[in-house]
Simulated assay, not measured.
Amino acid sequence: MPDPERLRALVAERYDVADPQVERLVDDHPVYLLITGEERWVIRVGAGLDRYAAVLSALDRAGFPVPPVLTDRNGRTVTEFRSDTETVQILIIGYVEGRPTPFHPEPLGRLGGALGQLHRDGSAAIQAAAGPPAGLPVVDRAGMLPAGELRFGLSRLAAAGGRGTAAERVVADRLIAACRAGLDFGHGLTSVFLHGDAHPWNSLLAADGSVIMIDWDSSGPGPAVIDLGFLAVSCATGGLTGPLAAPDPARLSAMAAGYRREFTLSDADLDALPFAVAFRVLVAAAVGFGTLLAAGRSPLNEPSIRWSLDRLSAAPRIADDLRRLLTVAKPPQLDR
């Protein structure tokens, strides 16, 4: 990760800002806080940030609230920075005020509503993403759709080459079959502008009580149920990298009610919920299982794999509950 002082010098050289101060925003990601006067910005460092800028531009032109982008003195939204080992991109966006969205029913209901609003108003963003400003790429699909993610999972399982105990090979074969079954997913479903990584930890609770979605790296056109399915399994079981959260049906119920107030799925979408809920958990299980087998380790002894398999087992029930919650009588509107 670039040293904050080198980034500060780059910002001072290339951007029209007064007395920039730069500090790390988080320890484990190349994301930094830029302070200039009373303004605060976020500096993202990495590859593919021109795509991120194109996503933010499309959403902004569609009227969806997203952070502003700070352009350099030449009017570019993305600039390059030479680190010790490589050339990376720099994107500076507005700092979003708020605190992590609490893992409780009411704020999760508002998050469901925010996702529903995005899906409802996404057609304008799809059109805008197809005609980006000069210098930015076309965004014609979301970043983590099933075909590519499932093929990656299959590649990791194939790399294991049949290693493991008899019990582990049984699990691996089940994961392979499930991944293959999902490769053609998406036909005939409602296409919207996805967030692409919709879970509670990619959102913030603002001072006015609204929930704001952040981290648009994987956004773009795709089936609405992909976003909704991942948000559903996250609300029901917690973050994918940790143990299953203590059960509380009110979390999923509130999220589903918030979403349904803003957006209505088709019958085909509802039929696709079982796979949509399982999708991201399936990929996590397949990638982790195959990687560990290839390394000569026992996946069934790893807590992260057990958590993924437990979530995968819970996915059909979560999908059934979600479908029921989405097809009950329409709930009253939230006060705005």
Rank of each mutant, 00 (worst) to 15 (best):
residue 5 E to P: 01
residue 1 M to K: 06
residue 69 V to H: 05
residue 138 V to F: 11
residue 289 F to C: 01
residue 21 Q to Y: 03
residue 34 L to N: 07
residue 166 A to L: 13
residue 230 F to D: 14
residue 39 E to L: 06
residue 217 D to S: 07
residue 254 A to H: 03
residue 11 V to A: 08
residue 120 R to E: 10
residue 48 G to V: 13
residue 172 A to G: 01
residue 170 V to H: 04
residue 2 P to L: 11
residue 73 R to W: 02
residue 33 L to D: 12
residue 336 R to W: 14
residue 44 R to H: 10
residue 314 A to S: 13
residue 180 R to W: 06
residue 236 A to T: 07
residue 264 T to G: 04
residue 266 S to T: 15
residue 317 R to T: 13
residue 122 G to L: 08
residue 136 L to N: 04
residue 179 C to F: 07
residue 278 A to H: 09
residue 256 A to W: 00
residue 128 A to G: 00
residue 268 A to K: 04
residue 287 V to D: 08
residue 301 N to T: 15
residue 335 D to F: 05
residue 315 A to D: 12
residue 246 A to Q: 11
residue 98 G to D: 10
residue 211 V to D: 07
residue 87 T to Y: 03
residue 200 P to N: 15
residue 296 G to P: 05
residue 253 S to K: 12
residue 77 T to D: 14
residue 51 R to Y: 10
residue 234 S to P: 06
residue 295 A to F: 00
residue 186 G to R: 07
residue 129 A to I: 06
residue 16 D to A: 15
residue 174 R to G: 14
residue 67 P to S: 05
residue 251 R to N: 03
residue 107 P to C: 14
residue 177 A to E: 14
residue 243 P to N: 08
residue 223 P to I: 01
residue 241 T to F: 09
residue 260 R to G: 03
residue 80 E to T: 09
residue 123 S to L: 01
residue 230 F to W: 05
residue 244 L to F: 05
residue 215 D to C: 11
residue 248 D to C: 06
residue 226 I to L: 10
residue 251 R to V: 07
residue 312 L to W: 10
residue 23 E to H: 02
residue 59 L to V: 05
residue 315 A to W: 06
residue 37 G to N: 09
residue 209 G to K: 11
residue 111 L to K: 02
residue 57 S to L: 00
residue 199 H to Y: 13
residue 60 D to P: 04
residue 90 I to W: 01
residue 252 L to A: 02
residue 233 V to F: 12
residue 310 D to H: 07
residue 47 A to E: 14
residue 193 F to C: 02
residue 293 L to A: 05
residue 44 R to N: 15
